[in-house]
Design a protein around this nucleic acid. Structure first.
Lengths: 159, 159
DNA sequence: ATTGAAAGAGTCTCAGT
DNA sequence: ACTGAGACTCTTTCAAT
């Protein structure tokens, strides 16, 4: 996509600051970036209207909530034309949080978050295996998530 | 982890509501869940103090910002004992946003977000290849991200 | 486009239940 | 533990620059 949004350095700085911590007040962020709170407000509103900023998500400790298992599932399809259909069925499973149609080994690389290994096994066996069009799957269970962050948008826009 | 946090149904409901959209006001959320805004406030504060709620992140359209390429990298290590060291080096690359130590084929499954294919190639060639301990890598480029959401925390707590 | 101030809305605290 | 009201802070608007 052509990056012709005409964002300036301030826009990038705001995005950069709020991507990891969306709680900072406009006044404080303004102080940090040497503009008024009103300006921050105008910019964020502009970014929302443009669709660059789509909202914000609560960041929770899933382990504390009892979700102990993150796993990745490489999915082989019988025919790649079945992708849309399989994707639609996968999306119905609430434990599946992410799906990418990829080059390479697998047709689909999905991510799933479960309470425990039993829960994972149940979803794989009772739901995933029943979807038509999936040839086979490979599951990678995460033993340690050592990094999970947002991409660091560089604060040096073109303007 | 033993899920002995003594969260009740209301706590789970609040988490559930705010995980996809952290913008709802306490007053509105209270109306929806049939309690006062003050109660929502007390609960969220409690959840923050417990460490269940860790903050919130701005949700941006990376494609609009010129980040067109999401890829996953399966990494084979020469020896699994090199994990800590490799993980530390990988974390220094800002384009790497996620890293999991996994069972199965690869030792590490990483995610990388780049502006374009050239950018990806440069990071793989100039930075990843130079890390000691990596035997080889397999790259899966995402052609389509059909799903990216938070896990739906079930709002039926134990209490 | 940015500012600063005023109006409006939301958060936070607390006494009462 | 929840409520409602008051104090406070933040967002939002707007006239002036």
């Amino acid at each position: 996509m052509a990056n012709k949004l005409n964002l300036d350095k301030l826009d990038y700085q705001i995005i950069h600051e709020m991507m990891e911590n969306a709680e900072t007040s406009y006044a404080d962020l303004g102080k940090k970036l040497f503009v008024s709170g009103g300006t921050i407000h105008v910019r964020i509103k502009k970014l929302q209207e443009m669709g660059v900023v789509k909202g914000s998500r609560l960041n929770v400790d899933l382990k504390m909530l009892g979700y102990d298992v993150i796993a990745f599932i490489g999915i082989y399809l019988e025919k790649s034309s079945l992708y849309d259909n399989v994707a639609r069925e996968l999306a119905k499973i609430p434990e599946i949080v992410r799906m990418n149609y990829t080059t390479g080994n697998y047709s689909i690389l999905a991510e799933i978050i479960c309470k425990d290994i039993n829960h994972l096994r149940n979803v794989l066996h009772d739901q995933l295996q029943k979807i038509k069009g999936i040839e086979r799957t490979e599951t990678f269970i995460s033993l340690d998530e050592s990094l999970n962050r947002n991409v660091q948008v560089s604060a040096n826009g073109e303007n």
